[in-house]
Amino acid sequence: MTLTVAAALTAGRELLAPSQAVACMCLAIAALGWCSTVRGALLCAGIGWLMFNGFVVNSAGTLAWDGAGDLLRAGLFAGTALTFAWLRALALWSRRVLD
């Protein structure tokens, strides 16, 4: 899913501001985080960062470290994935306890 989003963001690079591109990737990572475990969510966030860094920030799949911006995006993606994985775990736990 993150590769598809990265490809779509690369194709529409002129139509979106960089913050909107980050928000689109966060939505994809949130959906993946909701459907996975905490470890799986972190893996999805890492892969999402690699796809975003390689195809949206830099072109043609070239990975490069751009400093604080990359650190911020990686933290944002990881935080989004963890939040939604924990929310899903909490929803499943509360359903089990309340039913």
Rank of each mutant, 00 (worst) to 15 (best):
M1V: 09
M1Q: 02
M1K: 08
L3C: 09
L3F: 12
L3G: 13
L3R: 14
A6P: 01
A6Y: 05
A6L: 04
A7T: 13
A8V: 12
A8S: 14
A8D: 12
R13W: 06
R13I: 01
E14P: 15
E14L: 13
L15N: 15
L15P: 05
L15R: 15
L16H: 15
L16A: 13
L16R: 11
A17H: 15
P18W: 11
P18K: 03
S19E: 15
Q20L: 13
Q20P: 00
Q20E: 15
Q20Y: 14
A21N: 06
V22W: 11
A23G: 09
A23M: 09
A23Q: 08
M25E: 07
M25N: 04
M25G: 01
L27R: 14
A28Q: 08
A28W: 12
A28G: 11
I29A: 02
I29W: 10
A30M: 04
A30K: 03
A31I: 10
A31T: 11
L32N: 07
L32W: 08
G33P: 00
G33Q: 00
G33C: 01
G33M: 00
W34A: 09
W34M: 03
C35I: 04
S36G: 05
S36H: 11
S36C: 06
T37C: 04
T37P: 08
V38W: 12
V38S: 08
R39V: 09
R39H: 06
A41P: 02
A41K: 05
L43Q: 08
L43E: 02
C44D: 05
C44P: 00
C44F: 14
C44G: 11
C44K: 08
A45T: 01
I47Q: 07
I47W: 13
I47T: 07
G48K: 02
W49E: 03
L50N: 11
N53A: 14
G54H: 07
V56W: 01
V57W: 05
V57F: 03
N58W: 03
S59R: 13
G61T: 00
G61F: 03
G61S: 02
T62P: 02
T62L: 12
A64V: 12
W65E: 10
D66W: 13
D66R: 14
D66I: 11
G67T: 03
G67L: 07
G67E: 04
G69I: 02
L71M: 10
L72R: 10
L72H: 12
L72N: 10
A74K: 05
A74R: 08
G75T: 00
G75H: 05
G75Q: 04
G75V: 02
G75P: 06
F77V: 02
A78W: 09
A78M: 06
A78D: 06
A81H: 08
A81E: 05
L82S: 07
L82M: 09
T83Y: 15
T83Q: 10
F84W: 10
F84Y: 08
F84A: 02
A85W: 04
L87M: 10
R88H: 09
R88Q: 05
R88A: 14
R88M: 10
A91E: 10
A91M: 12
A91Y: 09
A91I: 03
L92H: 05
W93K: 09
R95H: 11
V97C: 12
V97F: 06
D99E: 13
D99Y: 14
D99Q: 13
